[in-house]
Design a binder for these strands. Structure first.
Lengths: 351, 351
DNA sequence: GGCCCCTGTGTGACCGGTCACAATCCTGGC
DNA sequence: GCCAGGATTGTGACCGGTCACACAGGGGCC
């Protein structure tokens, strides 16, 4: 890698509205009116001011603007991860919506769920006047949700809750339970005698537990087939690979539902190495529909989740909060989860 | 997807240092000294102030701090993309380094290279006192680099330049040329008669062109083998797939170097559909080493690039710039590119 | 005992905007 | 010709911190 140095150019401090005012022969308030597009400024005056602005290269200080107006038009995203697909896509949705509303977006990563670290992160990310969006899909995020001060202006993207949360919680989620149910039913309809579930770590402590698991269990129970013990996975392909090696050894396993596409990717590889053909011997379903999943060998059957939509909804909710300071109407902008059937699922093998 | 509403709690405006001062019976300046850890404050006074801070739930306004001190301790990342692996990993590196230095990081996405849009984005992202990091791997980024005001505090992650850039440009890059050369040589050593190159769009307008292509060409020329016309790809798997279908039809094609892993993914799929075995009939090499590449079928041979290191280096450079306002020493923190040989490359087929 | 310096603290200006309100000008209606 | 009222512009305070400097008190030194 290479890096080249730099020499700072440019002179004194940037021009302020008072500098512009002097240059244009008006008061600073008139300059303020011009930059804010206030209607009652005589065209001739406006032109003079605009000329001065251009001449001096004036740019309004967002900092001063935020301080004086009390509105920072800023939203900070608190998340444990920015690279994994679901997180990255949610952030993308937030950024899009924020940009459209002329909000700046900040990112702050939570490295662990350590209480002191999370508290410190919350302190730093919470500037009075700015909003907070929490991605609470995992334990650092959930911890931050617990530790956040009650008066914080915050919205959270959360794992599907077991039951409707207390009213007044600005939370956004997709219906994972229904989605998992649909995916499991798809496998059962293909003739599999049961479906194994490889779980992502769940953050839900309350009874009811993870809703992806619950939806899977719903479908099995409804079909009256045996419910195997769910397997504890992680988030990464390596976790899926490790679990997949164990699953591959069990000849009774013919269908696996994975908590996300990365796990499914690892499972696919483990099955391939073990010589178990997908989908002829084993069917695999993922969760998320990451961009590369359609190109895998075999292309992954998966549940598409609208993370970007969740991100946009989070921002919309927050926007309403900071503008009105009051409850706002829900914005149902994210698409419902949808099962995308591709190549990794097929009829159960004859026995 | 579901969304729940919210009721705003809490009362009046947050406490300021003057509120704390009154509560503690000291002057606002003493409060300022306490929150900044100034040494000459009597312990008893400090305690009283700290008690008042806790009691009132005081948190210092980052906005006011930035305005008064002139330092915003903020860096904004301007990029066309936040989800693709290379971009996301660079952002991760920036965020890590920024967090360690107590800087806040902002994200602003450039949707196109339209001049007005880019100028507007620069205007909004450039707050006096705050730094800018530009990810200039593509045309929106490069356009922003061209349009940025000369006095902006900015650092850019750029495509490998054809020749050392003018001194004083705070640019960071990895040596893609050497990396492409190494990957191509690897294929030639396996006995392939030549190597085809599927390019990502290059942003380099100057003579010399894209350095990944140049490195590939170097190796072919050095080996004295024919140099095929490079194929114009895009960034996405779909682009690789489209190009791969064409390549698959040509029986002379036995080795393909792809500009990134996503293109390689698409090529892999196209070859598979065409019934051309990888690596037995065709070898494929990617660029980037995305997290899923090791798990593909076959696992992808690729060039690992240290994007996170590039991100960290960008921040280090910027940090030096804002702290000292002067040239600073290069920070060689990113690892050099490295070829990771996996399963997608093998000996050239017998003829 | 007088002087100097250091510690601890307070005072008021200032950063670059916005806000509330006052002042002036212009126009139309009667 | 006089006045109401809108349009246009200016004045000064204020947002919540920091900065520069003044000032009181105490100890050491000659």
């Amino acid at each position: 890698m290479s890096v080249t140095g730099h020499t700072r150019s440019g002179g004194g401090r940037p021009a302020s509205i008072r500098d512009v005012a002097t240059a244009a022969g008006v008061s600073h308030q008139t300059v303020s009116r011009v930059i804010n597009g206030h209607p009652s400024v005589r065209p001739a005056t406006r032109e003079r001011v605009e000329a001065a602005i251009a001449r001096l290269g004036f740019r309004r200080s967002a900092t001063a603007h935020a301080l004086a107006s009390g509105r920072s038009r800023t939203v900070t995203v608190l998340t444990s991860n920015t690279v994994h697909y679901g997180y990255a896509a949610a952030i993308k949705g937030i950024e899009e919506a924020a940009r459209a509303a002329s909000f700046a977006v900040g990112i702050h990563v939570l490295e662990s769920d350590d209480e002191r670290l999370v508290t410190e992160a919350l302190r730093r990310a919470t500037d009075p006047g700015g909003g907070l969006i929490l991605i609470a899909y995992d334990s650092p995020g959930v911890r931050a949700l617990e530790l956040a001060p009650a008066d914080a202006l915050l919205v959270a993207a959360v794992e599907t809750p077991a039951e409707p949360p207390p009213a007044g919680r600005p939370w956004v989620w997709t219906d994972d339970r229904a989605a998992a149910r649909e995916a499991t039913r798809h496998l059962l309809e293909l003739g599999h005698r049961t479906v194994h579930y490889l779980a992502i770590p769940s953050t839900t402590r309350t009874s009811g537990g993870a809703q992806r698991a619950a939806g899977w269990r719903d479908a099995l129970t409804h079909a009256g087939v045996p419910v195997p013990e769910p397997i504890e996975g992680g988030w990464e392909p390596a976790d899926g690979y490790a679990a997949g090696r164990r699953l591959a050894r069990d000849p009774d396993v013919t269908a696996v539902l994975c908590g996300n596409d990365d796990l499914a990717l690892g499972v696919l590889r483990a099955l391939r190495e073990a010589g178990r053909a997908v989908p002829d011997e084993v069917s695999v379903v993922g969760f998320d529909d990451a961009p590369h999943s359609a190109y895998l060998a075999p292309a992954l059957t998966t549940v598409r989740l609208d993370f970007a939509g969740v991100g946009r909804a989070c921002f919309a909710l927050l926007h309403g909060l900071v503008e009105q300071g009051e409850p706002i109407a829900p914005h149902p902008v994210a698409a419902a989860p949808r099962l995308i059937v591709r190549e990794s699922t097929g009829p159960a093998p004859a026995r």
